[in-house]
Design a protein around this nucleic acid. Structure first.
Lengths: 117, 117
DNA sequence: CTTAGTGTACTGTGCATATAGTACACTAAT
DNA sequence: ATTAGTGTACTATATGCACAGTACACTAAG
């Protein structure tokens, strides 16, 4: 995975895990990689990996149990609502940015569909 | 202006100026605020403001003349092509993110138009 | 020439990030 | 009891960002 130099690495890894969870690539209750394992996979420092889980736990999408590891939450309503929030926010940000650039939602939608031709 | 704590301030201010230029809110050849003035307007450090123009000049959207100030480029083709690149990149990023979240361009376009009802 | 506005170049400080390395405590399985 | 895997907590170093403050050089206008 390549990192954007202008955002903290722990944030980018956290977002990657969040995406895995809300799209179901990581199932509810599933065990996530241990801190040291995560560090190896993403080629980051174990300390940075630890922070990923500390921050991710605050979102409620996972739970950490000392000595056992970190697990995807079993509460599927939390996951579903997180997915909703993510999509809503992504669309909102996109439209805001396009409005700044002088485009309307209609023209934005047209561009998206034109990409498919 | 409020800043995202997770991205450098100079980058965010630079993006704001870029947006002003490519949307025509700042005209070709127009003089931009001086470094100290920019610092006051955005409530940032003069050093940070200086960096904004140093980085912005690299994009070709403005030119700095020592003792005189920084000016929007007079080359309108540069501006037009920058505007194209920005929009294209924004749409591309949006579709990539939506794909990660399991949405298609069609569903994305539908969500955008639904926002307008 | 003097002045105001400007870009540029430093020093120094504080903070967050990311790294390396070490150590300790908890849990489950053997 | 031992072991492997795990979370957690430190120390220490290096880097980038943002800040405060100061100084100098260039340009145009009076």
């Amino acid at each position: 995975m390549e990192f954007d130099a202008n955002r903290p690495i722990w944030l980018q890894v956290m977002n990657a895990l969040e995406t895995d969870i809300i799209t179901g690539r990581r199932k509810p209750g599933e065990k996530l990689p241990g801190g040291r394992d995560l560090a190896l996979r993403f080629e980051i420092n174990p300390n940075t990996a630890a922070r990923v889980y500390q921050e991710l736990e605050k979102t409620g999408l996972c739970e950490t149990r000392r000595g056992m590891g970190t697990f995807v939450t079993g509460d599927e309503t939390v996951i579903a609502s997180a997915r909703n929030d993510f999509i809503r926010q992504t669309v909102k940000n996109f439209l805001q940015r396009m409005a700044q650039l002088g485009e309307t939602p209609q023209s934005a939608a047209r561009m998206i569909l034109r990409e498919e031709e």
